[in-house]
Design a protein around this nucleic acid. Structure first.
Lengths: 239, 239
DNA sequence: GGTAATATCGAACGGTGTTCGATAAATCGC
DNA sequence: GCGATTTATCGAACACCGTTCGATATTACC
């Protein structure tokens, strides 16, 4: 099991046939993986690209992770350390407000890193920060007048809503926006025009909300939806 | 633009050097893609595997779709035709109950096809059934005393919750369960034991709900969460 | 200093998505 | 019916991927 911090790999050895080997650590592997994910998303994190960043060969990565799936899970989990730090002091106010604060902090982390939604809190058995964040969210429900069953369901609902909504928003970025060919406003204007062009008899709801759609922000939409869910939880707790 | 139904490809031509070519249609490409997804998930749908099923070469797929991403989007959308059929008659009862019915129908479709959650309702601009399902959900909110802004947010919240929760449940199947090495009960028992082994002082919520966790079903959890959200919407509408 | 354990590595394997130029098949116009 | 055009299919090739294996470099231990 690796346990020492690697020193930076030298580029190619000097004279002679031997070439100095790179030296890694679990932390540096995960940190570099996160950097690649931030730059190019999940598709950009390949074992070969990561190895090149670390200055070594692709096979060395397999000393630290069993495969690319585990690498992604651990990279996502490592980023949640920042979310946990940000919400460490939360938990003394109104429990519903505290749930909102934690939910929004997690959502913001996923908006900052669109790839995160697909991997955060996926497997709390192998993702320690995910487990702690799940516990942190759940603890707020302990301060509500709910049964254990209701607390379990409320916690899962908040997690499901936050992760699901943020992941959906995170990956909905179409290729023309991701590549810079079109900015978000242009894209939204085009999508709005497509909605306006739909048959009004067939799509009454879409015509009813198209002005909202034209000016909505993802964050506003997320907050409004989270508040609906939290209102339902507060109602159930009779608070 | 393809517009004719292909006939079945003959296996290798008889004597002579010419080989009869396969013949496809957009419908057969999507139908066969769905079959492969059902059998082996998104990872099992490769362009080569699909071409082999259709009895042709991989390059022919590119006549019908621009790439594998579009293939997945269209395959997912095509499956939503069945969901739309199932909810066609919904819309005459209590709007909140009708939202529940539609949400549960969509959830069940995703439970039946775990790969669906990651691709359903991703891009209503290129997925006609997704657009219609979004419209169907939104139309229920027209029968509630809500502003256009509130209706837009309520609809997005329901969609986000259903898709996000179902997608999370759909892909959470760990390799040992997917591969048959362990059934769901064994896996749940092991996960429960891991939860029970956690330090009680550090994870008070998890110890509080571990018995719920041990006996929960995904569907029950989903319904409970959806009801919390719907309760919030009903409260907002003052109904 | 020799042995054992840990960590790194290049090469190879088996696979993928996608494109290109060729060509088979269908359609159209005369 | 035939030649031209259009549509659809194809094999090969390209560039890349995840993963494993046996070799070996490096570190730790006695």
């Amino acid at each position: 099991m690796p346990m020492r911090e690697g020193r930076a790999a030298s580029p190619g050895a000097g004279g002679g046939r031997a070439r100095t080997r790179a030296s890694h650590s679990r932390e540096s592997v995960l940190a570099e993986a996160v950097r690649l994910l931030d730059e190019a998303g999940a598709a950009g994190l390949t074992i070969r690209a990561l190895a090149a960043r670390l200055g070594g060969g692709p096979a060395s990565i397999y000393w630290y992770v069993s495969g690319r799936d585990e690498l992604l899970d651990l990279a996502a989990d490592s980023v949640l350390a920042g979310v946990l730090d940000a919400v460490r002091a939360v938990g003394e106010g109104d429990p519903i407000d505290d749930l909102r604060t934690i939910g929004e902090t997690l959502f913001d982390a996923i908006v900052d890193r669109p790839w995160l939604g697909a991997y955060a809190l996926r497997d709390t058995g192998t993702q320690p920060h995910s487990l702690r964040l799940y516990e942190k969210i759940g603890e707020q429900t302990l301060r509500l007048a709910l049964t254990p069953t209701q607390r379990f369901h409320a916690t899962s609902a908040v997690v499901g809503f936050v992760i699901g909504t943020a992941a959906d928003m995170g990956q909905e970025l179409p290729e023309v926006v991701a590549s810079g060919q079109m900015d978000r406003e242009e894209y939204l204007a085009q999508a709005t025009a497509e909605w306006r062009a739909l048959d009004e008899g067939e799509f009454p709801f879409i015509h009813h909300v198209v002005d909202e759609f034209a000016r909505h922000t993802d964050r506003g939409q997320f907050r409004a939806g989270l508040d609906l869910l939290l209102a339902g939880i507060r109602l159930q707790a009779g608070a």
